[in-house]
Design a binder for these strands. Structure first.
Lengths: 262, 262
DNA sequence: AAGTGGTCTAGACCACCTA
DNA sequence: AGGTGGTCTAGACCACTTA
């Protein structure tokens, strides 16, 4: 398999484009094509979470490329968190990350680790319309219909954060509250019910005073009504890069902090 | 060059260890050895910032390995931010990152970008002793002597953050205020004066009320004395992984937020 | 012993940059 | 045209896991 063959016969997706010139932006490195093909097969559910892919050599034979090329494609998918490898055992489909994300929590005692026994509580779904900012981030029209999934996070029984996940109501038409009630979270539900695998793209931090509504949810009342809160905005995208979820979270950070490694 | 040759003759550092058994943890993959060797030569200043390394083929010939192996080592150093590549031109030594870090700032308008015209102001050096937490993080003994470098950050002339960088007074004995005054920051100074190249290892965020001392420095006074601030703790390490700097920053985040991509 | 990921090589060719 | 990074192959061997 060579540049030439890709250039003016067909690529691995079967989109035949004969007699294309080599200058055409069409040509992608082989390993990128392999990567995208595997991405498709993963998102289409060909292999379940924690299930092994065929071996590098089998994939190489199947796709008629060398093992090194398959390996390079797999390495990128591992780096993106979609797969993981185990020496001597195989390459497996990764589980979708939790709604909290992969950031560890830490006690106020600065860099001491803390077992993340954070418990998730589903509060409800409501409807809303996209503000200008959210519409832009999710690539929707202004005031497009949204679903808002509200969650509460408890740490050792004590409420420590509230969450609003905003999703396109059109894209996720039919999402039911019952699906979320006993589930592992929004991301797990999107994968299971809609086949959409999501990953965090960026996160934004600022310090604010906890708004009244969130104060009530977090049980902050009475004398100490004015507390600072960590406001976290997060944009999550599907594997193809399409924005999927906008999330706004208020965290009480006197109990712990959010840590980003590297 | 093979596993065997590494195993019981000599490695690339010239540390001859004859007749070692292969089980000894001594053996590292070739590309890791190449990487560490290049790391040494970089930190020893063999090439300046923005200066090109020899080509992959030259290095391969020089080190008596294949181009692919050199390439793999370089790729990891690029991923760690020590080098960057330019197609058709070469592989270059990266500049040390600014004291602010590589995180972009953003306006309150949510994911709109902002030109980072953040200006740095050196306030002074003082001495302190390591608290238990800081001592543990920097791997020093409790109450070890520290240097504290204080900086102020302005955005469009307005103070938006204060910084304390804590460094081991023993390791950086002789650090002078004059070195910092006109410089590009602490990290640039550590590289230039001590040959220590530093990178951020982890960062921790929480929301707090701005303490009195920092309020004064940031010009928050009078009626609105109580403002929430983003508290950022950061641990930075040398290229060999040794912890070097503990930094504590207070940011006024009503003007902007800190964003982490990916 | 067989299978899987992980490393390494030598050689080839492509795409981009500089002169 | 010549140099540099970037891709690809075929074949070899190593290290770990499982049966």
């Amino acid at each position: 398999m060579s540049y030439i063959r890709l250039g003016f016969t067909t690529d691995l997706f079967g989109d035949t484009k004969k007699s294309m010139t080599l200058q055409q932006a069409y040509k992608q490195p082989l390993y990128i094509q392999i990567k995208q093909l595997l991405l498709r097969r993963i998102t289409e559910g060909e292999w379940q979470e924690r299930e092994p892919l065929p071996s590098e050599w089998d994939l190489a034979a199947q796709l008629d490329v060398s093992q090194g090329t398959v390996r390079k494609a797999l390495t990128e998918l591992v780096a993106e968190g979609l797969l993981y490898r185990e020496q001597g055992r195989g390459t497996f489909v990764a589980q979708v990350s939790s709604d909290w994300g992969d950031d560890p929590l830490l006690t106020p005692g600065l860099f001491k680790d803390l077992s993340d026994d954070l418990v998730y509580e589903f509060l409800g779904i409501s409807r809303a319309n996209a503000s200008e900012d959210v519409a832009a981030a999710l690539q929707l029209r202004r005031s497009a219909p949204l679903l808002r999934v509200r969650q509460l996070w408890r740490w050792q029984g004590v409420p420590v954060a509230v969450d609003d996940a905003l999703l396109s109501a059109e894209q996720f038409d039919g999402l039911e509250a019952s699906w979320l009630r006993g589930s592992a979270g929004v991301y797990a539900t999107l994968l299971r019910r809609f086949g959409v695998r999501v990953r965090m793209q960026c996160q934004q931090f600022r310090a604010v005073m906890l708004p009244r509504e969130e104060s009530a949810l977090l049980g902050v009342t009475g004398m100490v009504a004015d507390v600072p809160a960590l406001s976290v905005l997060r944009l999550s995208v599907a594997v193809d890069g399409q924005p999927v979820e906008w999330r706004h979270r208020y965290c009480l950070s006197h109990k712990f902090a959010i840590t980003i490694v590297k």
